[in-house]
């Protein structure tokens, strides 16, 4: 897992601070996928996630004077987006569920290797089902670190917790996930 931050972000931020809004659009393009996915994992609603991500970017622009040059931009941005997403979390329980991308699963076929592919596919489904039985806190930390591949600092900011808490919370979540998987085995 890596800490984000790049010379390109810094160049764009410098241009934005000089008044070039189009440079901010470049910054948005660089980070819109991760911002949207963080918002979606929190809200589990595509329209809410779109709004949260968009408002998060606008808020980040308006507070750019508070952003410390030289620090990585992405964790700071994701904290703002995550806050917007938490504010929008749908009141109804109807929320989109995590689904597997069908095309990424190996095609089931006959012949050598088919049984291995079938087992792998079943293991993924079982893992997803076990994650679905965890509470939201455990789901969020697992999604932040393994699905979105956020660094510890980014996960801390996105989840609104201290950096030191990320590791302990993740360990506990993995422990509970292992118990769920053993229960099904």
């Amino acid at each position: 897992m890596r800490e984000s931050g790049s010379a390109e972000d810094e160049d764009l931020i410098t241009q934005v601070r000089e008044g070039h809004v189009h440079a901010y659009e470049g910054l948005v393009e660089r980070h819109q996928t991760i911002a949207f996915r963080v918002a979606w994992l929190i809200t589990r609603s595509t329209p809410d996630a779109e709004e949260a991500a968009q408002d998060g970017f606008v808020k980040a622009y308006r507070n750019l004077d508070r952003f410390q040059s030289g620090k990585p931009f992405r964790p700071w941005l994701l904290q703002i987006v995550a806050n917007e997403a938490r504010n929008r979390r749908a009141s109804e329980q109807r929320r989109e569920r995590l689904a597997l991308r069908a095309g990424r699963e190996p095609a089931l076929r006959s012949g050598p290797g088919a049984d291995v592919a079938a087992v792998a596919s079943e293991e993924r489904r079982a893992l997803l089902a076990a994650i679905g039985r965890l509470d939201e806190r455990d789901q969020s930390i697992i999604a932040a670190r393994f699905f979105l591949e956020l660094s510890e600092a980014e996960a801390a900011m996105a989840l609104g917790i201290r950096r030191g808490t990320v590791k302990s919370r993740l360990n506990r979540a993995l422990g509970r996930l292992r118990k769920e998987l053993e229960r099904d085995a």
Binding site: E25, G26, V28, E29, Q32, T33, A35, F36, R37, W40, T46, A49, E50, A53, Q54, F57, E96, L98, A99, L100, R101, A102, R104, E105, R124, L127, L128, A143, F146, F147, L148, E149
Partner: peptide, 15 residues
């Protein structure tokens, strides 16, 4: 590996 196969909704053109 599971994270690589999560079916996220398409990212909107936010820029």
């Amino acid at each position: 590996r599971l994270g690589e196969s999560v079916d996220y909704p398409s990212t909107p053109a936010l820029a």
